[in-house]
Design a protein around this nucleic acid. Sequence first.
RNA 1: GCUGGGUUCGUAUAACGGUUAGUACUCAAGAUUCUCAAUCUUGCAAUAGGAGUUCGAUUCUCCUACCCAGUACCA
Length: 579
Amino acid sequence: MERRTRVRFAPSPTGPLHMGGVRTALYNYLYAKQKGGDFIIRIEDTDSNRFVPGAEEYIIEALNWCGIIPDEGVDAEGKVVEVASERHPHAPYRQSQRRGIYRKYAEQLIANGYAYYAFDSSEALEKARAEAEAAGKTFIYNQATRMQLRNSLTLPSEEVSRLLEETSDWTIRFKMPEDTVVAMDDLIRGHIEVNTDTLDDKVLWKRADELPTYHLANIVDDHLMEISEVIRGEEWLPSLPLHYMLYKAFGWEDSQPRFAHLPLLLKPVGNGKLSKRDGDKMGFPVFPLEWTSPAGETSHGYREDGYFPEAFVNLLAMLGWNPGTEQEIFSMEELIGAFSLDKVGKSGAKFNPEKAKWFNKEYLRMKSDEELTELLVPVLESHGINVIDCPKCALTIGAEFNTAGGDLSKHIFTRDYIRSVVSFTKERATFVKDFWTIASYLFVAPKDFETFGIKAGAAVEQQASNRPADPRAKVYDDSLTAPFLAKDVDKFWKPEISAMVEEVATFVKEYDGQWTVEAFEAALEESIKGREWPMGKVMNATRLALAGSASGLGIADIIVRIGKADTCARIRFALEKLG
RNA sequence: GCUGGGUUCGUAUAACGGUUAGUACUCAAGAUUCUCAAUCUUGCAAUAGGAGUUCGAUUCUCCUACCCAGUACCA
């Protein structure tokens, strides 16, 4: 008999979900969708002390951004469902709203001899731990110590009843059986055996807040919600024996879910699991979305840093899982088809930020020019550039367009202009925002760089910043030549060359051929060759005058877009400024 | 400490017990180009160590080392 596949992602709203959590959610989602089953989200907020406002909303929004949409647990508006309905027979999905149902299960365990009441105060236990530690031992609440402690196993029943009535900080603990081997099977790790003597009597339910702990809530809810597979992080592996024992104690072995423990996501350098700190330190996000803590501290998010959700999902999928083929780029649909738990690795995966960028670059290249144009427009606008749909509309505001569709003096550009920039700049960009650093001079002349906050040679600098600095490099004072990159001025702007650049201006002014990159380039090169000029020098010096640095886009590409008037104006300005 | 899990190039990973141990990212070199980027080509680089089983071990077993997790009235 086939059981319907039902898996859940059960985050605790104690802070923003980090990328490891998103990956767990993703694997659950992929698994469910592949089997045609349900993906459920359940909020595990049984720790009243660690609740963080906004965390739950953040988690849902992050999952939503990634395209990981729950079948159950969240309604169409992205709100956690609180009342049961046909579509949500298992609601509510927030454990704090289910508190009424856990106690009786805990009591059932006591009635059957699988659990007991414990009256030890937190202070008493802490003291016992401290004493044991001082003696070089570890205090464990288990079969070896429970008979020396204050609980319903050791106290007379009248005393137990009295304490139950009159005090409110007692707990219900699981009575871990003695010397029993628990044999477990993990979908990823295979067969595992553990002796119960190494385990402790975990707290299942707390009278103080009338809430269960993770272990009880988890087992009860998974059972009630008919979960077929539990796919969770490796940090849960040590409590798997407890969970097995719990299923047994409840008599639910037959419907017990199968378990899969995912390897952890590790920090890029050094040892240990990936944490919030690493991202801040190494300049990459660990969170899907930007997060501002209640204390006002902001952490980067993949979304805000310019990653496409598809790229983020793709890179996450490949961290710990592989398709068994050499394919690396997968859409969500393809992932659903290809995913399998037995291709999930056993060892922790170190996250590599470089590879993450590579994924985004690949996705950027796959996008159409139109799509990228739409994404770029708001970026340009945020930098003070005006974008309009058609040249005609602009006539009313007095813009005069060059042949490529731009009016650089008024910083107004048509969508066609933007699209053309995107189209031939695409393969240089990793993020949409890169278009601005790569091609800002196609929108703003060096003369106005300062007003637009553009640094000479921004694209060059951005690229160089990814590499360690060369200690032999000469240090230049950019302020002397701004907006032209000082080291390029030093290298390319010689008196004899500036004269040649002036002639390029003349050539452009008198050019009356076709205004396409190919035609113009051919003509320009012809004219330079004809005069036996050192082409490289002229081109580099010209680029310096037009773009502020000697490296960057092709000369013809630039001139054809900024047009005659602006080319001449820029060269004039450079001559004036640099001599 | 104890318990459990893990270990293939720097990183992510591939390899029914039989391969010159493959691929991608990064890095380096060359080609190309007016420069940079892109692209193409080439290169650097790994089975943690030791026993055993086997004709043959990255793969199976054991030991050692190292790493990780858990060891809460947190999840």
